[in-house]
Write a protein that binds this DNA or RNA. Structure first.
Length: 338
DNA sequence: AATGGTGTCAACCGCGACCTG
DNA sequence: TCAGGTCGCGGTTGACACCAT
């Protein structure tokens, strides 16, 4: 394991760049390089080396493969993926190369949690276009269709499950529209205010997306970040600090890693708060739904749609709510959710 | 400490659309 | 027009990490 981590750091160093993954959170799983590195080819896999007609490789990409692909595209450009895979000497299908590049290695791929703005946009666009992931992704610069699809399938569908309804049901759509989205909008506004009042955001200190060198820088950063997370016990940035600088990074990332971890510490705390709020929000929504009892209680009537959306929902809710529920969740609470 | 459940996300698969000779 | 190659999309899978028991 240690050897593997060293290799990933070494491979990055060979490219000769430094930090750069924009908006990376304290790394629940920052890069599949973690996976790839852990699964360097077994001895059995090495037999491919002596066989030009060896079978195509599958599964996680290694750091070497990533570098090969990045370097080849830097020199020759992307496209013609099957030919590219052969010419670059990668034992991968063109399809696999394309996917790896578009979803992961491309310099302008943004990583980390979706912002409230982005979440809002995803919810909104999905309500209009359905599972048109690539179309939705086109509206979110730096985000891939795969990432958005995963977000939808994990986070959004999880909330639907919490509400005990189908993600495509009117009930869930209403909950989304009248509970979740206003809340996200509120958070987005708060984020904007925060960014305006703070001199520089973590992302702004990182290289601008779009240049190919930034791509390799990103690999360096991801490797460093991965080391932080893989060495930390509780996944908090502070606990990752000491092990990062002392072991896997081999000292090469010391200052950068410290800076990253320092920034990550703030983001970590914010993330924790956000997660807690999120949990409270959905449990409240669930409780509310159960107390109001009906399958359709969360749905609004067609007329309500013509009113201001949020106040309309609140009115609809207040009309149908039982005294018990009213006690549990005062109107103040409802308004606070707007 | 062991184990099973769950969440996350990179990667793969199948298929249809498009391109090219 | 047609056949083979390529690309892009949406759905699914599998590995891993974390957490609860």
């Amino acid at each position: 394991m240690e050897m593997v981590l060293q290799q990933s750091a070494t491979a990055s160093i060979l490219v000769g760049n430094s930090a750069g993954a924009g908006g990376c959170r304290p790394c629940p799983r920052p890069a599949s390089m973690a996976v790839a590195a852990k699964r360097e080819p077994e001895p059995d896999d090495q037999k491919e080396d002596g066989d030009a007609e060896a079978e195509l490789r599958r599964g996680p990409w290694t750091v070497d493969e990533d570098l090969t692909l990045i370097n080849y595209i830097a020199e020759h450009g992307e496209g013609r993926w099957n030919a590219l895979a052969r010419a670059a000497g990668l034992k991968r299908t063109g399809k696999s190369c394309r996917l790896r590049w578009l979803n992961y290695l491309r310099p302008d791929v943004k990583r980390g949690d979706f912002t409230a703005d982005e979440q809002l946009l995803i919810l909104d666009l999905h309500s209009r276009w359905g599972n048109r992931w690539s179309k939705i992704a086109a509206q979110l610069p730096g985000r891939t269709d795969n990432e958005i699809k995963n977000y939808w399938r994990t986070r959004v569908q999880k909330h639907a499950k919490q509400l005990n309804c189908d993600v495509n049901s009117k009930r869930f759509k209403d909950a989304m529209r009248f509970l979740w989205m206003p809340r996200l909008a509120e958070r987005a506004a708060a984020d904007h205010h925060h960014h305006l009042s703070s001199s520089s955001s973590p992302a702004s200190s990182l290289p601008a997306a779009g240049d190919l060198t930034g791509c390799v820088e990103k690999m360096m950063m991801m490797t460093a970040m991965n080391d932080v997370s893989s060495n930390s016990e509780d996944r908090s940035p502070s606990s990752g600090l000491t092990t990062t600088t002392s072991s896997s990074s081999g000292g090469s990332f010391t200052s950068e890693s410290n800076a990253v971890v320092s920034v990550a510490g703030e983001e970590w705390a914010a993330m924790q708060r956000q997660q807690q709020e999120e949990n409270e929000f959905w449990s409240t929504a669930t409780a509310l739904q159960q107390l109001t009892g009906g399958e359709d209680q969360l749905c609004v009537s067609q007329q309500d749609m013509h009113q201001d959306l949020i106040s309309g929902w609140v009115q609809g809710f207040s009309d149908g709510v039982s005294p018990d529920v009213a006690q549990l969740w005062s109107l103040d609470d409802i308004w606070r959710m707007q």
